[in-house]
Amino acid sequence: MAPSYILLVEDNPDDLFLASRIIGKACGHEILTARDGEEADELLRRMERDDTYRHIRLVLLDLKLPKISGLDLLRGIRTSDKLHELAVAILTSSDNETDQEQCWQLGVVDYIYKPMTVDRLKGILSRYEGAQ
């Protein structure tokens, strides 16, 4: 059976470490990381082409990212032929209400204020397990 992935898009090394740790505790999924919006975009396009994107269980997306913002990346995912079905959760430390509203409108499975907890992630995964 092919491995399942969680794609973690996060530029801050500490946040990356903390989120990876929580993912490791919450589930057995492999972690794919992207350190900025552009890198994430390239990775997703590649996976879209070879259809490996199907193995991504969840995208954990920071909003404040270098090069391409989390919100733009989310828009890109939602307008893509194949990627639009991906489950995306926002992981942020911003309390900007407009951002949050836009994210919900673009269809996210959760909007998490950092730090993420094991229980919160487990909850999302149990809700969206096999969503694809």
């Binding site: 801050n12 500490d14 946040d15 903390l18 430390s93 204020y113 950092k114 730090p115």
Partner: peptide, 11 residues
């Protein structure tokens, strides 16, 4: 300030 405080909380 929120981001580093969240990090601290995480650690």
């Amino acid at each position: 300030l929120r981001a580093p405080v969240a990090r601290l909380e995480g650690f």
